[in-house]
Design a binder for these strands. Structure first.
Length: 785
DNA sequence: GGACGGTGCATTTTT
DNA sequence: TGCACCGTCC
């Protein structure tokens, strides 16, 4: 292949620096819309084409499945383009269709197939399919390669059974959701039950540690892993088995991580182990033909609730890098040119994010023109807000022939907010899609079918077994199941071991034994065929022999499409077989558990998009509506008393604003119906008060609130329902922009006020010294002027 | 064993 | 509001 540097010549100088990076560590700080994915894909191409790196030695990790798919597609296209140019001296699209297909298949076979591109979870599950049987936990637990992957509801139901059944705790005080959350957090920080207990020496902490112990035991007994263990186990395995680590270390010579600000401690450990062969960053110096290349933006870190820790990104320079300043460093590149948004939109975004104290200095520079003004609207209630938004959409679509429905996005903080929008969209007959919500693989009928399949692959999976033993109804009720379950617990064997043995079953199942035996034989027959039959054959057999399809059909009502969903699942298996020559039921199930995003191949594409701000990360739209900017909703009431949480909400707002290419509309409602019937009067979001007024047109007077004073802050940050009559004492009535004198640092300007109540802090910028966070109660600072 | 209706709780974000 | 869970009754 002749090397044409076409994909490099189009890059700006920082992008180029990133793309041409070869060995050693590099952190790419990539602002929104700065061509991050482009840099990642071009670098992979550069490694393979110009540095002669074997694609099999490259590992590219993303955060979502969507990002992984997109990366693969872009790499494929890039290679096909290069190939078209060198073979035919023509761009790809100028070649005949057949030629294009041929090129793509060549590219797939020779480059893409060997590349490891995927999410942390899917990559780790692949590693575990090879090596999990070499692992034993400190508590002596082990798994086999047929392990099941528990989703959140499986995990929670296991926890619930432990909390109630094994530990006899009050499940209101230890509600399974929050216990699961605590355990998940512990796992993501790399803590085992003992370490967790060490760090949480309270009654509750000790109890949760105990649940955690039982939970791990339960997972092992089910031969199952939850999402967190999917990553934690490889880390532990690498630490206890140098040979296994060495194998993967030699395999992955070039590691790339996208959305690095979203990594948690365990994920960091994984990358660090793989890159340095367990030697640690400080000791490791053999970077020949080896690299770690991470790309991220601390300002877009919005997943801390899932233990993502953007200080890992902020620490890259000192941990992996040369630690030098921005001007001298060779391990840090900043992409600050934004190709997406108008300068108005960018200025507003930059202004807002400046209010955060914890960030890497970075300013997005516009490459496009000023653009239209940004609009801010205040509606009476959520229905009126929706009317406003949809009204604008209709109007813009009508007046601008270049705008289609798909060019509009409505972004909100919480999923329920889609309702009001959907209502109005439906009324006007505007096509729309809601991203997120109930996922395909979370639907009851799909989970049922998957439970059958999981049981076929992994007989130890008692959670699945219990789910379907009486679905559809086959007369094996609670009493029977309890008897069987007790026996299994007594013998410390999986429930299936009791059920598969007809003698035991006859003894225990009483009146239901005949039906139970029929069930047992049915499941056994699938299990025998797992190795030989194709996944689609097995699915078909399961659907028929269980009577599940027939049952669905008989119960079918107007508005559910359960039957169709199950058919869809069947088509999914068939498609999976076509796309993966070595497809097994086991790999299909892993794929189903990890690919839970809702990206259905929609026939209809020209639709308005409704989604949460979280779901919008990485996307862009010509016209964006940011709705529900109300204190307690956005920022969420859960964040109001926590300065760090407010900063995360602000980053979320920043993400929302930077999705917009040409036009941005922001709105809030004076009154909003919460669950139930209650109408709550709401205060405009603090973020509105932080936007630069000069850039924003208001549609009604008072749509954009003034910059908050300390008094407003205290009232609103503490309490979503502020007491507007609360008197503000003059002495702590600080405001942003105030000039102050500090006895050590000299003159400065207040740039930021955060915290609430007794915890109020000021961020003060002292020229030549930098930003300091100061508590005005304990430090004397004098006001100037 | 299963259907039905009452009560109480939840809404942040997801691999 | 709407869903999950529980108790009651057939």
């Amino acid at each position: 292949m002749v090397i044409t540097a076409d994909f490099i010549s189009q890059l700006n100088s920082s992008q180029r620096q990133a793309v041409e990076h070869f060995c050693g560590p590099l952190l790419v700080v990539a602002g929104a819309g700065s061509g991050k994915t482009r840099a990642l894909t071009a670098r992979i191409a550069n490694l393979i084409l110009n540095r002669r790196v074997d694609p099999g030695n490259i590992l590219a990790v993303t955060f979502t499945n969507k990002a992984a798919r997109e990366m693969k597609e872009r790499i494929e296209r890039l290679f096909a383009e290069q190939e078209a140019l060198s073979r035919h001296s023509k761009p790809l699209h100028m070649l005949p269709e057949q030629e294009q297909v041929q090129l793509r298949s060549y590219v797939y076979k020779n480059f893409l197939k060997e590349l490891w591109v995927g999410t942390f979870h899917s990559l780790c599950s692949r590693i575990l399919r090879f090596d999990i049987e070499k692992y034993q936990s400190p508590a002596g637990q082990s798994w086999t390669r047929n392990f099941s992957i528990f989703d959140e509801s499986d995990a929670q139901s296991l926890i619930k059974s432990i909390v109630i059944g094994q530990m006899n705790l009050d499940d209101r005080k230890f509600n399974p959701r929050s216990v699961r959350f605590a355990i998940s957090n512990a796992k993501n920080q790399g803590l085992d039950p003992n370490e967790y207990e060490e760090a949480n020496q309270t009654f509750k902490g000790r109890a949760i540690a105990e649940v955690y112990r039982y939970y791990q035991k339960g997972l092992a007994a089910n031969n199952a892993l939850d999402f967190d263990d999917l990553i934690r186990l490889p880390v532990q395995l690498f630490r206890q088995n140098a040979q296994v680590l060495d194998y993967w270390h030699r395999r992955f010579r070039h590691i790339l991580v996208d959305e690095y600000q979203d990594t948690n401690r365990t994920q960091y450990d994984l990358i660090q182990l793989l890159a340095t062969n367990g030697q640690g960053n400080q000791k490791f110096d053999d970077w020949q033909n080896r690299s770690v290349f991470v790309v991220g933006d601390a300002d877009q870190s919005i997943y801390s609730f899932r233990a993502a820790d953007f200080t890992i990104l902020m620490g890259f320079q000192t941990e992996f890098g040369d630690g030098k300043t921005d001007d001298d460093t060779e391990t840090l590149v900043k992409l600050e040119e934004n190709y997406r948004s108008t300068s108005n939109i960018l200025d507003v975004a930059n202004h807002l994010i400046e209010n955060n104290t914890e960030r890497i200095d970075k300013v997005l520079r516009a490459t496009r023109g000023t653009g239209d003004a940004i609009f801010c609207h205040r509606a009476d209630n959520e229905a009126m807000e929706a009317e406003y938004v949809i009204g604008q959409i209709r109007n813009l679509e009508l007046k601008n022939p270049e705008l289609n429905w798909k060019d509009f996005a409505v972004l909100y903080r919480t999923n329920i907010q889609s309702r009001a929008m959907e209502e109005v969209l439906t009324r006007f007959g505007i096509p729309y899609k809601v991203v997120g919500g109930l996922r395909f693989y979370e639907r009851r009928e799909i989970k049922d079918v998957l439970a059958y399949l999981r049981l076929a692959v992994n007989p130890a999976d008692s959670v699945s077994l219990k789910r379907i033993i009486n679905v559809p109804r086959r007369g094996i009720g609670k009493t029977t199941l309890d008897n069987l379950d007790k026996a299994a617990a007594e013998l410390e064997v999986p429930l299936w071991d009791i059920i598969k043995d007809e003698t035991s079953l006859k003894t225990l199942a009483g009146r239901a034994s005949k039906r139970a035996i029929a069930f047992s034989r049915m499941v056994s027959s699938w299990q025998e065929r797992v190795e030989t039959a194709s996944p689609s054959e097995l699915v078909q057999e399961v659907l028929e022999s269980t009577g599940y399809l027939a049952d669905l059909k008989s119960k079918e009502t107007e508005d559910d499409n359960r039957f169709e969903n199950v058919e869809e699942l069947y088509r999914g298996v068939v498609q999976f077989e076509e796309e993966n020559e070595d497809a097994t039921l086991s790999t299909f199930l892993a794929n189903a558990a990890l690919n839970s995003d809702n990206e259905k191949n929609n026939d209809e594409n020209n639709q308005v998009t409704l989604m949460t701000l979280h779901a919008s990360k990485g996307l862009e739209f010509p016209v964006v509506f940011l709705v529900g900017l109300e204190q307690g909703l956005f920022p969420s009431f859960r964040s109001l008393e926590d300065a760090a949480a407010i900063e995360e909400e602000r980053r979320l707002c920043y993400v929302g604003i930077t999705r917009a290419q040409d036009r941005l509309f922001i709105s809030h409602a004076r009154e909003r119906r919460t669950y139930g019937n209650m109408r709550e009067v709401s205060t405009p979001s603090i973020f509105l008060s932080e936007l630069p007024r000069d850039y924003i047109m208001t549609t009604v007077p008072s749509a954009l609130p003034d910059r908050w004073t300390t008094t407003t802050r205290k009232a609103n940050l503490k309490n979503p329902q502020p007491n507007l009559n609360a008197p503000g004492t003059h002495e702590d009535d600080w405001s942003v922009g105030a000039s102050v004198i500090h006895k050590a640092f000299g003159a400065g300007k207040v740039t930021h006020i955060f915290g609430a109540g007794n915890k109020i802090c000021l961020a003060i910028h002292f020229p030549g010294i930098g930003k300091k966070i100061i508590d005005p109660r304990t430090t004397t600072i004098d006001r100037l002027g």
